[in-house]
């Protein structure tokens, strides 16, 4: 039994199903990556795990409890953090205020968590009083991840965190994500840059048309000639 798992999920937005019997799972301290061609239902699978789309078959289990019936907000309270692909920071709020808003549901003292985030992303400490909208793309992603970390989640989900950033920034972000995983958080992310993502992944899921096509360790997938040919461009 994995720490977080979406099991046999089938569902979609309207009448037509996008996901078909799709299973995704991740352990504590592990990085799981969902890759696949455009329109494979990668983001949809993640949103299903987070409860932003209804599944009529299958279930989502977190730490042994079935959370299929919870709303996204309640899943946040249950220990899941989510970083959307776009519009993932409050642009008119300062970096520090963004982090404070991330901790909105917490009633205890969260200054220690904020320090932890600042340790992880030192540049944010420097720019704590700047508006998030004024930051560069990579820094914004750091704010977005930091915001999600403020609830001290047990699982962090990232929807294409490296979309639209330069290769250098991408490497930096992946380093950050590894750091986060080392703290014992389970990380589930959807990635367009499949090769680089699988490089850091403990587990990889290749989805095609809403179905699991390959599931293996990141290393194994990178070595699999079929995966290389069809999904990694040779």
């Amino acid at each position: 039994m994995s720490f977080l798992s979406g099991e046999n999920m089938t569902g979609g937005y309207g009448a037509a199903d996008i996901l078909h019997d799709c299973t995704i799972a991740v352990e504590k301290g592990e990085i799981a990556v969902i890759v696949g061609p455009n329109g494979a239902g990668k983001s949809t699978a993640m949103k299903a795990v987070f409860g932003m789309l209804s599944i009529h078959t299958g279930r989502v289990v977190l730490d042994g409890t079935d959370i299929s019936g919870l709303s996204p907000q309640d899943r946040v309270k249950a220990g899941m953090g989510f970083v959307p692909q776009t519009n993932n920071v409050f642009t008119s709020l300062t970096v520090q205020e963004n982090l404070e808003m991330g901790a909105y549901i917490r009633t205890d003292d969260f200054s220690e968590t904020m320090e932890r985030v600042f340790e992880l992303f030192p540049i944010l400490k420097e720019k704590r009083n700047q508006q998030a909208g004024e930051l560069s793309g990579g820094q914004r992603q750091q704010v977005a991840v930091g915001r999600a970390l403020m609830t001290q989640p047990k699982v962090l989900m990232l929807d294409e965190p490296t979309a639209g950033v330069s290769p250098i920034v991408m490497d930096e972000l992946f380093d950050n994500i590894i750091e986060v995983a080392k703290t014992g958080i389970a990380i589930l992310m959807v990635e367009q840059n499949a090769r680089q993502a699988l490089n850091i992944a403990d587990k990889g899921y290749v989805l095609v048309q809403g179905r699991n096509r390959f599931t293996d360790t990141g290393e194994a997938l990178l070595a699999n000639p079929e995966v290389r040919k069809s999904f990694l461009g040779g």
Partner: peptide, 18 residues
Amino acid sequence: KSMRAFSDNEDLALLSGI
């Protein structure tokens, strides 16, 4: 601050539990 956050980005505010 939560009001400003809501005004800025409603979806993200919901996600943050506001």
